[in-house]
Lab assay of single mutants.
Amino acid sequence: AVCQVIGMYDYTAQNDDELAFNKGQIINVLNKEDPDWWKGEVNGQVGLFPSNYVKLTT
């Protein structure tokens, strides 16, 4: 993983390639090539999510 982030809001996947997560959930970021849509993993599920829905862990 590149880094870990925390969901600031609940996110519901809109497409099959997206990653759903809940507020407060830890997401392992796998790829930040696109500044707006990062690739991440939660509980074995991998997908894209909007980078503005998360904050970096300290």
Rank of each mutant, 00 (worst) to 15 (best):
residue 27 I to S: 01
residue 48 L to P: 01
residue 23 K to P: 01
residue 21 F to C: 00
residue 26 I to W: 07
residue 34 D to L: 05
residue 34 D to E: 08
residue 43 N to E: 11
residue 47 G to P: 01
residue 16 D to E: 14
residue 31 N to I: 06
residue 42 V to G: 05
residue 53 Y to R: 13
residue 37 W to Q: 11
residue 23 K to H: 09
residue 12 T to H: 12
residue 55 K to W: 04
residue 22 N to A: 15
residue 7 G to V: 06
residue 19 L to Q: 01
residue 26 I to P: 06
residue 15 N to L: 05
residue 41 E to D: 00
residue 21 F to I: 10
residue 31 N to K: 09
residue 40 G to P: 06
residue 23 K to A: 15
residue 19 L to K: 01
residue 1 A to R: 12
residue 16 D to C: 11
residue 56 L to G: 12
residue 37 W to P: 00
residue 1 A to S: 15
residue 32 K to F: 06
residue 37 W to R: 07
residue 37 W to T: 10
residue 32 K to Y: 09
residue 58 T to L: 11
residue 46 V to A: 07
residue 28 N to H: 15
residue 10 D to C: 07
residue 45 Q to R: 13
residue 45 Q to C: 13
residue 2 V to F: 10
residue 57 T to I: 12
residue 22 N to I: 10
residue 13 A to W: 03
residue 40 G to C: 02
residue 4 Q to M: 06
residue 54 V to D: 00
residue 41 E to S: 09
residue 56 L to I: 14
residue 52 N to Q: 12
residue 19 L to H: 01
residue 13 A to F: 06
residue 15 N to H: 08
residue 2 V to H: 12
residue 10 D to Q: 05
residue 1 A to Q: 07
residue 5 V to Y: 09
residue 3 C to H: 04
residue 29 V to W: 05
residue 22 N to F: 08
residue 37 W to K: 03
residue 17 D to A: 09
residue 5 V to P: 00
residue 41 E to P: 00
residue 5 V to D: 04
residue 11 Y to K: 01
residue 56 L to E: 14
residue 57 T to Q: 14
residue 20 A to N: 07
residue 45 Q to S: 11
residue 12 T to D: 11
residue 37 W to Y: 13
residue 51 S to K: 12
residue 4 Q to T: 11
residue 23 K to F: 05
residue 56 L to Y: 11
residue 20 A to S: 13
residue 8 M to N: 06
residue 41 E to Q: 01
residue 36 D to F: 11
residue 46 V to P: 07
residue 22 N to W: 07
residue 56 L to N: 12
residue 47 G to Q: 05
residue 7 G to T: 15
residue 48 L to V: 13
residue 3 C to W: 08
residue 6 I to K: 10
residue 29 V to D: 04
residue 24 G to L: 05
residue 47 G to S: 02
residue 16 D to Q: 15
residue 11 Y to V: 03
residue 22 N to S: 14
residue 39 K to H: 15
residue 32 K to V: 10
residue 48 L to R: 13
residue 38 W to G: 02
residue 33 E to V: 09
residue 6 I to S: 05
residue 45 Q to G: 05
residue 52 N to M: 12
residue 44 G to C: 04
residue 28 N to V: 08
residue 53 Y to K: 14
residue 48 L to C: 11
residue 15 N to K: 14
residue 42 V to T: 09
residue 28 N to Y: 13
residue 55 K to E: 12
residue 36 D to T: 12
residue 34 D to W: 01
residue 23 K to Q: 13
residue 58 T to A: 09
residue 44 G to W: 02
residue 49 F to W: 03
residue 38 W to D: 04
residue 42 V to K: 08
residue 27 I to G: 03
residue 31 N to R: 08
residue 27 I to E: 02
residue 38 W to E: 03
residue 50 P to T: 03
residue 18 E to Y: 10
residue 53 Y to T: 12
residue 17 D to R: 14
residue 29 V to T: 03
residue 9 Y to K: 15
